[in-house]
Design a protein around this nucleic acid. Structure first.
Lengths: 341, 341
DNA sequence: TTGTAGGCGTTATCAA
DNA sequence: TTGATAACGCCTACAA
């Protein structure tokens, strides 16, 4: 058994509570005692048992991260690696610890979350997605457990602290860029329509077209759940249309990579034959062939802000609900060209 | 305050210990009592406090994951996302929970690890890298704390359970493939030589050349720490040699993407002007332009096996030390060509 | 400034 | 088959 506070107390000829106070650096302990106790701690190699501390404090100093589904797409997409980097950065400063859900289905994830919440394993959670009718968020809300959402809630927006991009504008600007290049036949390739991002970006796309007086061609709208393979057939069909699009707005860089691949299989050249704008500006956007014009959404910052506000909320339950919008920016690279050039 | 075992006990007219036994589904409790107690638990909405359980059990049912350095390259590289997927999968089945280090420097990471170990926060750890003189592994060894290494130890190989690929063979085979295609001027682009993977793959490269009777040209050897940018200058120099290589063995798909980019900037075509073989066969290898010929090392399996053996070790401290080698396989795609074709 | 004692929620030992 | 009771290691009134 490891050395405990009692061992230290005994060896230093003080009471356990004194040792505890020394650890907390309480001002009510004389410098001399502190020195003495610290010396003993050092000698005995004392280290606090966090579990015991958590129990006594009713606080674990841990934060749980909820992924949409660890098994499949989630980890594949650098978006998550990148938010994680941000979160990790924030957490490390505040000396919190990170916990993960590992469930593969919504049901399993819900179980993980319940375990964390009821089990007092974490003090708060970060939800990395916003999905329609999601039981996990519903649970968190019901329990009134501290959490922040990365994304935009479907409802109760005023009650849920969330950090998000203005995805409508982001998509609108991306589309407008294409329109300025002379494109009027613009396809939209999105993910699962159950996610708020998908909807918001679609909305931005629609607005841009509307403002430009371009009618939406429903045939140009594709929704595929799978990052890479899924879009393949759909993109092919799209390109085989009598009147195929001359530009594509793709919801995600990774999906865009898949699209690029399919396009090249079809013998279509980007940007000569068709222009592509995507979102997220993940590392690979720059590395793609051609380098992708992509809307940078500051994923890292998304993560940083999420922890920041979560911790505020944890440490001060009365903290007001907040809505943080992280700026975005279109990064122009080589995947677009003026139409008919 | 949440409902505890005592509340349940009171409401069900039994002792707390009885409730505890019901939770553990002890065979020494009558079915009737179990039913009764379970009903009350249900009604009251009881959920066990994991922290308290951990304290009583002296076991947290949690596993810590150690990244080389969360701040920089680590999360960027899909290798880690992919092992994580494997780990996550394994962990979820066994109902363990995952914890992460968030430190950015070796020193910070060591602190994280100490906190987890001494704080009894995790029952075991998975170390995701093998670096020369790494203080983290040293610590784990000294403490005799259950851990498994993903990679090959620099020393004490017989004492450290590790799961790894046969990276020497992997690199040898990759190189041999290039040699079979007629290449004799083969460059090696590696990462930090402090990591075991780098050394092993370099060794495999050397052996292949030796067996083929090709002398090693030290000018063809590059070591860059940074995933993408780092290689740039070095690759340029390499290609500006009087006698530039006709093929490149790149230690990592992601780095290979960077190389591809640099090559294209130099006006060199892959595979026409130069062939490229890389390692890991991460999702993006297939998506690259051209699709990369890469040595698949079964990253997912690496993760699965790591948890599996860690948990065995945790649950049975006498478990013998193991060395698990995960098979690899060269995946031929479009980034190589016979020389002079 | 320091010590005593009770509590955090479970589990486990020992009786009954 | 069940109940009392003492841990697990730490924190914090309250006392001294």
């Amino acid at each position: 058994m490891a050395v405990t506070i009692k061992d230290v107390a005994k060896a230093a000829n003080v009471a356990p509570s004194t040792v505890s106070r020394v650890i907390a650096d309480s001002p009510r302990i004389s410098e001399e005692t502190k020195r003495k106790v610290r010396k003993v701690m050092e000698e005995l190699g004392y280290h606090p048992n966090m579990i015991a501390r958590s129990l006594a404090n009713q606080s674990s100093k841990a934060i749980g991260i909820i992924f949409p589904n660890s098994g499949n797409t989630a980890f594949q997409n650098p978006f998550f690696s990148e938010v994680l980097r941000g979160i990790s950065e924030g957490v490390s400063e505040k000396h919190y610890i990170l916990q993960f859900t590992t469930g593969r289905t919504e049901e399993e994830i819900l179980q993980d979350v319940k375990k964390m919440v009821f089990g007092r394993v974490v003090d708060g959670m970060i939800l990395l997605y916003s999905k329609l009718g999601d039981s996990v968020m519903k649970f968190l809300k019901e329990q009134n457990f501290p959490f922040v959402l990365v994304g935009k809630p479907f409802e109760d927006s005023e009650v849920i602290t969330h950090v998000d991009n203005d995805n409508i504008s982001a998509a609108k600007e991306g589309t407008e860029y294409l329109i300025r290049l002379g494109h009027r036949k613009i396809g939209f390739i999105g993910g699962d329509i159950g996610f708020m991002v998908t909807r918001n970006r679609l909305e931005g796309y629609r607005r841009a077209l509307a403002e430009a007086g371009i009618p939406v061609n429903e045939k140009y709208l594709i929704h595929e759940e799978f990052l890479l393979e899924g879009g393949k057939e759909a993109v092919k069909e799209l390109m085989l249309l009598d009147d195929p699009p001359t530009a594509l707005l793709v919801i995600d860089d990774i999906m865009a990579l898949g699209v690029l691949k399919t396009l090249s299989e079809l013998g279509k050249k980007v940007p000569e034959d068709i222009s592509v704008v995507s979102f997220n500006n993940v590392l690979f956007a720059e590395l793609a062939q051609p380098p992708l014009t992509s809307v940078d959404i500051n994923i890292f910052t998304l993560g940083i802000e999420a922890v920041k506000h979560l911790i505020q909320k944890i440490e001060n339950p009365k903290e007001p609900v907040k809505r943080i919008i992280i700026p975005h920016r279109l990064i122009v690279r080589k995947s677009c060209q003026a139409v008919g050039r």
